[in-house]
Design a protein around this nucleic acid. Structure first.
Lengths: 236, 236
DNA sequence: GCCGTCATTATGTCTAGACATATTATCGCG
DNA sequence: CGCGATAATATGTCTAGACATAATGACGGC
């Protein structure tokens, strides 16, 4: 490793060297870079180490690797930003506020057709619908409307969502695998505007999230944030 | 590997087995799971294979690994969603429209103080400011306001941004490392509303992006999308 | 010239062993 | 009892060698 006094390189060093060649266009976009074995010889490390380094760069989107075809520099590195999806409580507290939560409504309803479609549910006649408000220092932070499938979240009908937000209950009771997020801007109207204590027609950020467990839908969430809210990607 | 008829397991199989134990709460949140060596013995694979599998799960946020302390199941798996950041052209064409682009304004201006701060520029007296419109089937798709630092993007003053959007030029001329994204909802006003051909006060999605190269700011972009636009996370 | 077959090649993965490194736990001393 | 030195331990990483796998490209038959 680099930390060694031996001068031997670790995979992070190899990755850094490769990154430098990419930045300097020594390996220009579209070009095929030397095979692992050759780089291993050049850098004086084993092929595994080169493999680890190039695999990391490929995951970051810089390289495109295919068996036999070799490793190609991506024409245009597909940039990605990652959004963290924290608990509302953490988000509010991280912003320096005191978190508050109020359950507005709770009902067991027949499964809406669109919902069944989005969550990929079949033969689940009834779902739990919740409506809640998240508060920061007592002021509205976000309005939440949520549906939960009892199929993937057993015991959800018995949970006390007046005491604990759905997100917190789900996190501790249902292991989820994938999240799908959709963000849009809408104008606050009617009930949501009233709950958020903002003017009618104000621009608000609406986040819809579908959470799945092994491909089966667990919950659909529609979050209407108070005006002025920002979503930031996590650095890195 | 699993594809083998040998019955030997590969790292993906080990990861799947571990995932199953996590889902079944055999390894409950907060618990410490057996050390790699032990799992290697149990599964009949080498420690490297277990390491690869557990490392993957740790990257996904399921596990928390620390030397000597062992591997702990995350209390609450931090869910993440990743946003792809495509070229506007690709985004529009992927939506099934014909892409169009119009440069509205181009000027070299003194570096605004706030911009210098956000991009971490020092001693860069002048920057390029662009204003452009992206079209889908001839209709406004997004309004773009952008600043580019000539320090990290040499040659930017000579580029012809009437023929090619800034994004496309940058992608082929400047290797970038990190992107920071911020999303908010605003009301369309004045010039932007006119350009987007929407009513004043309409809710629009505003995306701000800062792109860096090795920590030095390259460009700041402010994209105002036409009403109704949605940002979706990439599955996976 | 066209198409199927086969050898070639670069990456993907696994193994066993070794050493590095960061903590944690323990033990002994004051 | 507190605290610092020390031993133990789990993960992090590297190596060399091996086989698997996918895809290419060349060759040969038609």
């Amino acid at each position: 490793m680099a930390a060694d006094a031996t001068g031997a390189l670790g995979w992070q060093d190899v990755a850094a060297l490769a990154r430098a060649r990419l930045a300097a266009r020594i390996w220009p976009p579209g070009a095929i870079i030397p095979p692992e074995a050759e780089l291993a010889r050049e850098f004086g490390v084993s092929r595994s180490t080169v493999n680890r380094a190039l695999r990391a760069l490929a995951e970051e989107g810089w390289l495109d690797r295919r068996r036999k075809a070799g490793t190609r520099v991506a024409e245009r590195p597909v940039h990605r930003a990652t959004l963290a999806i924290p608990l509302m409580r953490d988000e509010v507290e991280a912003a320096g506020h005191r978190y508050g939560y109020r359950l507005l409504d709770r009902e067991v309803t027949a499964t809406p057709g669109l919902l069944a479609l989005q969550l990929g549910m079949r033969g689940v006649p009834r779902v739990l619908r919740l409506e809640a408000l998240h508060l920061a220092d007592g002021r509205p932070w976000a309005h939440e409307e949520r549906w939960i499938s009892p199929e993937t979240a057993p015991g959800v009908f018995e949970a006390d969502f007046a005491a604990q937000s759905a997100n917190e209950w789900l996190v501790t009771h249902v292991p989820c695998s994938s999240v799908e997020v959709s963000v849009s801007a809408e104008r606050a109207t009617g009930r949501v505007a009233a709950m958020l204590e903002c003017e009618d027609g104000e621009a608000i950020l609406v986040v819809e999230r579908i959470t799945r467990q092994e491909g089966r839908g667990v919950t659909l969430l529609r979050l209407s944030h108070a005006p002025g809210h920002r979503i930031r990607s996590t650095p890195g």
